[in-house]
């Protein structure tokens, strides 16, 4: 078998567009997903009983079903209920819901490990429950679970590769489209693999750098 990477690289515009989409989807899903995760973690710790049940059901539903099924449900299933979404919006929603559920569960572990005395000390300083949560409980919790969260964000980034199934033009979609035209499957996927690997390594470094600076201090 002879390799011809030129046949794939000639479509570099498609690959670049795919790369931009993958990064964009991941960035939006990470920001909103973490907000969802923090919100749900707050509800789990302080919300009313019904709210806690709803959040618990959401987390279990997402964590116990495959991502691609969630994606297909949002894109192919919801139109039956009159909710029409573009492929890109459907992909972002699926990724946000996914990361939101996992980060809720990951943050819960960090929050539960908060020493009781720390919370009592904060309460004795007359901080409101929300202030206690945001300033006393959350930052050290983030610090405890940051490596797990970073891994989860990378999993979501890699998981975005299935969004090509609903015609979102991300990186895997680009590789698949190129190989379906020139039949250079090996070369196309080797390139996609290398790009994903590079992205994952860079993203991990970025998050490991950003975490101490913006979320919890060193």
């Amino acid at each position: 078998m002879e390799f011809d990477f030129g046949a794939v690289l000639v479509d570099w515009r498609l690959l670049l567009k795919g790369l931009v989409w993958t990064l964009g989807l991941t960035a939006v899903a990470t920001v909103i997903g973490l907000v969802v995760g923090v919100g749900c973690a707050w509800i789990r710790a302080h919300g009313s009983k019904p709210a806690r049940v709803v959040v618990g059901a959401y987390v279990e539903l997402i964590r116990n079903t495959p991502f691609i099924v969630q994606l297909f449900f949002i894109f192919f299933g919801l139109p039956a209920a009159g909710v029409m979404l573009t492929p890109e919006i459907a992909a972002v929603i699926a990724m946000v819901l996914n990361l939101g559920a996992y980060s809720t569960e990951i943050l819960r572990a960090g929050i539960e490990a908060t020493p009781r005395g720390q919370i009592e000390a904060a309460e004795s300083l007359a901080l409101s429950p929300l202030q206690v949560f945001l300033h006393v409980v959350l930052p050290p919790s983030f610090k405890r679970v940051w490596p797990a969260l970073v891994s989860q964000i990378i999993i979501v980034m890699l998981g975005s590769s299935v969004c090509g199934q609903i015609s979102v033009e991300e990186l895997s979609y680009a590789a698949n489209l190129i190989q379906s035209r020139n039949f250079r499957a090996f070369e196309a996927f080797i390139i996609a693999t290398a790009v994903y690997l590079l992205l994952a390594v860079l993203l991990r470094r970025l998050l490991n750098w950003a975490g101490p600076r913006f979320f919890f201090g060193r």
Partner: peptide, 16 residues
């Protein structure tokens, strides 16, 4: 573009 015919059909039938 979709991965297989079933997805293409599903997208059209659901109005996507």
């Amino acid at each position: 573009r979709f991965e297989d015919n079933n997805a293409t059909v599903a997208a059209f039938v659901s109005g996507q």
